[in-house]
């Protein structure tokens, strides 16, 4: 089946990000397709590449990044949530004259239309927050 997942919570503040990650891994194990990951609200922090996590803790952002890159998954952070939370790609960094880039290379910034598109074109859309 074609699944899309929406993640509303930041990692470490809530268990939901880890639940979503576990669910996504299990989807792939069972041979389902992930049509899109959509990070919304505080969920955009899951796509930060600037997090440093101590070795005895799960590095959730890094696990998302590997999952997305290795399986070539379409991963989107909501533009209106991301920019105000400092989740910035090269394009936005240049446009706003910022010094840094924080968005993982495996995700892109896009609008809420991508969430609506996912709700139309997936068999199941599952929210985690």
């Amino acid at each position: 089946m074609k699944f899309s997942l929406v993640v509303y919570s930041a990692p470490y503040s809530s268990q939901s990000a880890a639940t979503a990650l576990h669910f996504a891994q299990q989807l792939l194990i069972q041979g389902h397709e992930i049509y899109r990951l959509f990070f919304f609200g505080d969920g955009v922090h899951n796509a930060s590449k600037l997090a440093v996590v101590s070795q005895d803790e799960t590095h959730i952002q890094q696990q998302w990044d590997s999952l997305i890159a290795e399986n070539n998954i379409d991963s989107v952070v909501c533009v209106s949530s991301a920019l105000k939370r400092g989740i910035i790609n090269l394009e936005e960094s240049n446009r706003h004259d910022l010094e840094s880039i924080s968005l993982s290379d495996s995700s892109e910034i896009a609008g809420l239309g991508q969430l609506i598109d996912a709700s139309i074109n997936s068999d199941r859309l599952v929210n985690f927050g």
């Binding site: 509303y8 919304f40 209106s80 809420l112 709700s119």
Partner: peptide, 19 residues
């Protein structure tokens, strides 16, 4: 909390895309 605003944003996006 920001939940109400997120929900509102989804409603507008859905309506804009004629759902």
């Amino acid at each position: 909390s920001g939940a109400a605003k997120l929900c509102l944003d989804v409603s507008i996006a859905a309506a804009v895309f004629e759902q």
